[in-house]
Design a protein around this nucleic acid. Structure first.
Length: 904
RNA sequence: AGCGGUGUAGCCUAGCGGUUUAUGGCGUCUGUCUUACACACAGAAGAUCGAAGGUUCGAAUCCUUCCAUCGCUACCA
């Protein structure tokens, strides 16, 4: 068998993914094993893979693969959500390109088109996840709008309605004039934008006086129904009982006094437009003001505006300023910056609008959500995200959840109207029965009832996801096995859309579905842990997004570095919860972000490094002969060191510190295994290796591929298969994760000392000009108890001789002729050198080291001479400082001796 | 404006009261194509731990204020 000189991910990755799929390793069925479950935060069905997804899904895959290796029955459920607004917008756009308007279609026809669109384009992202290596149970792929999941949605809607937790009401809502739907608060993004503040004067009726108001939205003047001032504002006290005349429409409106007005802002006088401003609406309620809706749903002026009817609000803004100016109403215009809300999906500026909507009452839900995290039934990683969670959920801030959307793509609200009454039911027939009973009229038919035109918010589907993907609302056999899920991995930006609401849903329904006994044993929570990933940002700290064009192409990255490389790159710099500044360079001439990354390249290099280790081992001839002493020691060390590393690794996983886990593995594999262990056992050129050592090496390597597998699944699977002849059905992905066994820390320290000594020998050798790599040298160590103890360690001498390329290593009581001295640990060594060494350079180096140590010593002495330190600090600490002092003094003494002999 | 997170070498990161004049990695610089690997090996340089005060015998670590940055919430029209 010959191995490629370099590791090339491309062919290898697709080969193994295919193999895993064929073997159905990702598929889960309930059995006697303990389950480990993750439900994917369903990406938007219209979406394509971006950097955030890659980070997020890499983490989920790492957790799932490790659990699988540990013997859990792992189930990672993939799927997508139907994203009503985004998808409907895409479908409308596509139809428009074909010359079809949504308004020309019936609801059923439109839905037909939408489903066709979904079948054609939806779920591309899931295929892309396969390229990343995601080991999702694809047989379980779900979609929030499929039949069963939709049924669940209707079921909980009816349930909440019956419990009085859902209500319908007239409210000021966030209206998206482009998507023609209302949005929840969370779907509106507020940001500072440049605008102008217009000072406009209104005439006071029956007087020559004027009152000047300030507004950023002069087009809404046409809908004004009052001018408000603060009750304590003396400037305006005399206007009590007077009326102001709204320009152009010449409407007389009252001047009202309300404490909402800020006296210091603008002129202290506020125009009140109850139909188009949240706060004005509240004022309107208090003062019983007229609500004049001057805007149509699509953002054009309505009949009620009287002017500019049918024109868009933004062109009207320009026009009305000119017209007001001509009429002498504009006092002045200043540049201004204010917060403008835009739709997360369409980017349209949101209009506050009074509409009838369905709401979920949140007070109780919020308390449940908070408690779940407070009690530790749900754990956040990192913990501090609880602050943000609390901030949103506490009773002062929580707002009822508006769940209706004026769209067609989604679950249609199961409410039917007849004669002003509403009937909420899972089916039309049920609603009809209710209506017949209510009206005592058996002759009512389905035609008499009118179903609500609106659909439900997409998140009203996704909050059920941890239950509904197991068809939990219908039957509970699978839910019993997989619920609660283990961990949810998500960006903190959707903490409220998702995490909070999923927790609420879990607590609301799990007991009804699973029964008291199950809940007492396992809990109500939908997941035990929430791992919040950071945002992936560019070098300027902007969130990487498609719209900004600052993101590299995810698929190109995968092509360039392999999935293993990209996974490494994403994770190595992603401490939990911290944002990642991804290092893809921006090309100014091409004006785009390149699909290149040093971080991913490091991952590819790492894959190649392990590949090279494989080539080395597989290149050895094997012979049945006695194991050399060095190799016995090497094996003992590797075994201990492996367990030490594994223990650290387990701890990192326990705290969800995945990047630390990966970096530890990287250092262990590259440093300890490749650079030290393989060098220790490497036979001299041309010689064969003994069978025992060979088998041990294969054994260690195999364990390494297993613990590395969750992070870099492809290269490890490939190497694992090359290490041994494997039977059908044996694969790295389903092999057994090693368990930590005891390790000898003292022994490990001894070998570390040996490694330090070897490094020192190599340094000393490197200074000798023209020295051949294999030239054997002689080393003496000054006799001492410590030295005796050190070299008594079985086989340590042989190890140092091999790694240091020595033929003599002995104790001495005198300084040998023509030698250079150095210190390793607390021992003094002499390396026999027949050649002159650069005394000057050596002296400089030693003096520098001496200086450093003396500085260190001063620090310690300061502490020890401080009486309060000696008296107050714990004895242990003082003793430690004393030991540090003694050790440092000894070292300085050795250096001084060396300097003396150099000057001779 | 209120609240919260973060701030450690050019970049990422560990440490979160004394084992540290600060950990590891990337990058940089200097050698070396050494029989697995130049996607490598061997070395080196690079940090007054955001700033200023305070608590303490002792602070990167705790407290206060400030600055920067990222958010959340609420907005003065």
């Amino acid at each position: 068998m010959s191995l490629e000189k370099r590791y090339t991910p491309q062919t290898i990755e697709s080969k193994w993914y295919q193999h895993w799929l064929e073997k159905k390793y990702f598929h889960s069925k309930p059995d006697e094993r303990e389950a480990y479950t993750i439900v994917i935060p369903p990406p938007n069905v219209t979406g394509v893979l971006h950097m955030g997804h890659m980070l997020n899904n890499t983490i989920q895959d790492v957790l799932i693969r490790r659990a699988r290796l540990q013997g859990y029955n792992t189930c990672w459920v993939p799927g997508t959500d139907h994203a009503s607004i985004a998808t409907e917008a895409k479908v409308v756009k596509k139809l428009r390109a074909k010359g079809i308007k949504k308004s020309d279609l019936t609801r059923e026809e439109f839905m037909q088109h939408a489903w066709e669109w979904k079948e054609e384009y939806g779920g591309i992202i899931l295929d892309q996840l396969k390229k990343l290596g995601a080991s999702c149970d694809w047989d379980r792929t779900r979609f929030t709008m499929e039949d069963k999941l939709s049924k669940a949605v209707l079921k909980v809607f009816v349930d909440l309605y019956k419990k009085g937790k859902i209500y319908r009401g007239l409210r000021m809502t966030n209206w998206d004039p482009e998507a023609l739907t209302v949005l929840s608060n969370e779907e509106v993004i507020h940001s500072d934008e440049h605008s102008k503040l217009y000072h406009v004067r209104y005439k006071i009726a029956n007087s020559d006086e004027w009152v000047t108001i300030a507004t950023t939205r002069p087009e809404t003047i046409l809908g004004d129904s009052a001018v408000a001032v603060h009750p304590k504002d003396e400037r305006y006290a005399h206007l009590k009982g007077k009326k102001a005349i709204i320009p152009m429409v010449n409407r007389e409106v009252p001047i009202i006094f309300d404490r909402y007005v800020t006296m210091e802002f603008g002129t202290g006088a506020l125009k009140v437009t109850p139909a188009h401003d949240m706060n004005d609406y509240e004022i309107g309620l208090r003062h019983n003001l007229e609500v004049i809706d001057t805007l149509n749903a699509n953002g054009t002026m309505s009949e009620a505006a009287q002017f500019y009817i049918g024109e868009d609000r933004f062109s009207v803004r320009k026009k009305i300023v000119k017209d007001l100016e001509a009429l002498g109403h504009i006092v002045n215009v200043e540049d201004y910056q204010n917060k403008v809300g835009r739709s997360e999906r369409t980017n349209a500026i949101i209009e506050p609008r009074l509409t009838e909507q369905w709401f979920v009452s949140m007070k109780e839900f919020a308390a449940t959500g908070l408690k779940a995290v407070e009690t530790g039934e749900v754990n956040f990683h990192p913990k501090h995200f609880y602050n943000m969670y609390h901030n949103w959920l506490n009773e002062d801030n929580i707002k009822d959840w508006c769940i209706s959307r004026q769209l067609w793509w989604g679950q249609r609200i199961p409410a039917w109207y007849y004669e002003g009454e509403v009937f909420v039911a899972e089916t039309a027939q049920d609603a009809l029965n209710q209506a017949q009973e209510k009206f005592k009229d058996k002759n009512l038919t389905l035609e008499d009832l009118k179903q609500d035109e609106d659909v439900l918010d997409t998140w009203f589907s996704s909050w059920l996801w941890p239950i509904s993907v197991f068809d939990g609302f219908e039957k509970q056999d699978e839910l019993k096995y997989y619920y609660p899920t283990n961990v949810l991995v998500t960006g903190w930006d959707i903490m409220f859309f998702w995490v909070a609401r999923m927790v609420m849903a879990g607590y609301e329904w799990s007991e009804d579905l699973l029964g008291k006994e199950h809940i007492q044993k396992y809990g109500k929570q939908p997941f035990k842990h929430v791992y919040y990933t950071g945002m992936v940002r560019d070098e300027q700290r902007r969130k990487m997004s498609k719209s900004l064009g600052n993101s590299p192409d995810a698929l190109e990255l995968l092509d360039n570095y392999g999935a293993d490389g990209v996974r490494f790159g994403m994770l190595s710099s992603a401490a939990a919860g911290n944002d990642i500044l991804f290092d893809a360079p921006y090309d100014k001439t091409q004006k785009k972000t390149l699909s290149e990354s040093e971080k991913c390249n490091q991952g590819l290099n790492f894959a190649n490094k392990i590949w090279q280790a494989l080539r080395l081992i597989k290149g050895w001839q094997i012979e049945d002969k006695k194991q050399p002493k060095v190799n016995t020691l090497a094996a003992k060390w590797m075994d201990n060191r492996f367990n030490q590393a594994l223990e650290r690794l387990d701890n990192s996983f326990k705290d969800f510190r995945l990047s630390e886990a990966l970096m530890d593995l990287y250092n262990f594999t590259w440093g300890d295994f490749c650079s030290w262990y393989l060098e220790m056992i490497k036979p001299p050129y041309g010689e064969a290796i003994d069978r025992k050592t060979y088998e041990q090496a294969i054994g260690f390597f195999e364990k390494i591929t297993i613990i590395l597998h969750p992070f870099m699944p492809f290269v490890t699977e490939e190497i694992w298969h090359n290490l041994n002849i494997r039977k059908e059905g044996e694969d790295c992905i389903i092999s057994q994760y090693p368990k930590v066994t005891v390790f000898d820390e003292e022994f490990l320290k001894t070998v570390e000392n040996a490694k330090e000594l070897i490094t020192k020998i190599r340094e000393a050798r490197a200074k000798i000009k023209g020295l051949k790599k294999h030239t054997l040298m002689q080393l003496y160590v000054e006799k001492s108890n410590n030295a005796q103890l050190f070299f008594d360690t079985p086989n340590i001498k042989e190890l140092i001789m091999k790694m240091g390329v020595l033929d003599v290593l002995e104790m001495t009581t005198t300084e040998p002729e023509s030698s250079v001295a150095f210190i390793a640990g607390t021992e003094k060594y002499y390396l026999i050198v027949k050649q002159e060494i650069d005394k000057g350079a050596e002296t400089v180096k030693l003096k520098k080291e001496k200086q450093r140590l003396e500085g260190f010593l001063i620090g310690i002495a300061k502490k020890l001479s401080n009486e309060r330190f000696v008296n107050n600090a714990p004895e242990k600490v003082v003793a430690l400082e004393r030991k540090k002092q003694a050790d440092t003094e000894a070292k300085i003494k050795l250096i001084e001796e060396q300097l003396k002999s150099l000057s001779l």
